[in-house]
């Protein structure tokens, strides 16, 4: 099986400063990969690069044909503007189908069905007509996941997804992601601070500190030096 995303010796930089140096990694279909590291270690930069929002200064990123067609399902950090945005859950989820339309300006019945299917998948069909800004943090998160799944259900990329969620919403979130990954084969790529949970959930870990400190399976990570220090020997 071909990898969905493959990086070989990729560098990123801003104005002559290297933010990320020499990253080699890949995400295969159905995998659960986490990028961990401290603040300022280049995690978010690398992720922007994988999404195609930032051009690498060196190396090659290759994206599978299938993903290139559909675009990448992405769960961004919330912006302040979204907190009071007047839009219904249905409208937000449907906007994930945009890349399926090409240049045709309106949605067809197929996209609407897909949006309904994904809302059912995440258990938010009951609040489809509700206003996004009136939802709880967990419900907003699920809305955005449903939107990302409308773009593609091959790969979901997430940027610090648990920021600002309360503990019960966090537990629920990990459960949803686990279910999508194990039962429906959605590959997951997550940037996270939450190492303690990540080592229980993910198949592969990339530990970043400007360069790659560790890249491999979670089991190996726990035995490795970097992993031992970072997880406190968990």
């Amino acid at each position: 099986m071909n990898p969905l995303i493959q990086c070989s010796h990729v560098d990123f930089g801003y104005e002559n400063q290297d933010a990320v140096v020499d990253v080699t990694m890949d995400v295969n279909p159905g995998e659960y990969v986490c990028i961990v590291g401290e603040n300022g270690s280049g995690k978010s930069t690398l992720m922007k690069g994988l999404l195609g929002l930032l051009k690498p200064t060196g190396g090659v990123i290759s994206v599978s044909d299938e993903l290139r067609r559909s675009g990448i399902g992405y769960l961004p950090q919330q912006t302040a503007a979204q907190k009071d945005f007047p839009a219904t859950v249905r409208e937000v989820v449907l906007s994930g189908c945009l890349s399926r339309r090409g240049n045709w300006p309106f949605y067809s019945g197929n996209e609407k069905k897909l949006a309904v299917k994904n809302m059912e998948r995440l258990g938010i069909i009951g609040i489809a007509g509700k206003c996004y800004r009136e939802l709880s943090g967990g419900q907003q998160q699920r809305t955005l996941i449903a939107r990302a799944l409308c773009a593609t259900d091959k790969l979901l990329i997430m940027d610090e997804p648990i920021t600002g969620l309360d503990p019960s919403a966090i537990a629920e979130f990990y459960e949803i992601i686990r279910k999508l990954n194990r039962e429906e084969g959605v590959a997951i790529l997550m940037v996270s601070h939450d190492v303690a949970t990540v080592v229980k959930e993910a198949d592969k870990i990339l530990h970043l500190k400007r360069e790659v400190l560790f890249y491999g399976t979670t089991k190996e990570y726990l035995k490795s030096n970097a992993g031992y220090i970072y997880t406190g020997g968990a």
């Binding site: 999404l51 195609g52 929002l53 559909s70 675009g71 990448i72 399902g73 992405y74 961004p76 912006t79 979204q82 945005f85 839009a87 409208e91 937000v92 906007s95 994930g96 945009l98 890349s99 339309r101 300006p105 309106f106 949605y107 939107r147 990302a148 773009a151 990329i157």
Partner: peptide, 22 residues
């Protein structure tokens, strides 16, 4: 009117829209 759906996507979330190829 023609760009309504794209304008919505771009207004709501620029990064997501960009990642999905808008």
């Amino acid at each position: 009117l023609i760009c309504y759906n794209k304008i919505f996507a771009v207004t709501f979330d620029e990064n997501f829209a960009r990642a999905t190829g808008v």
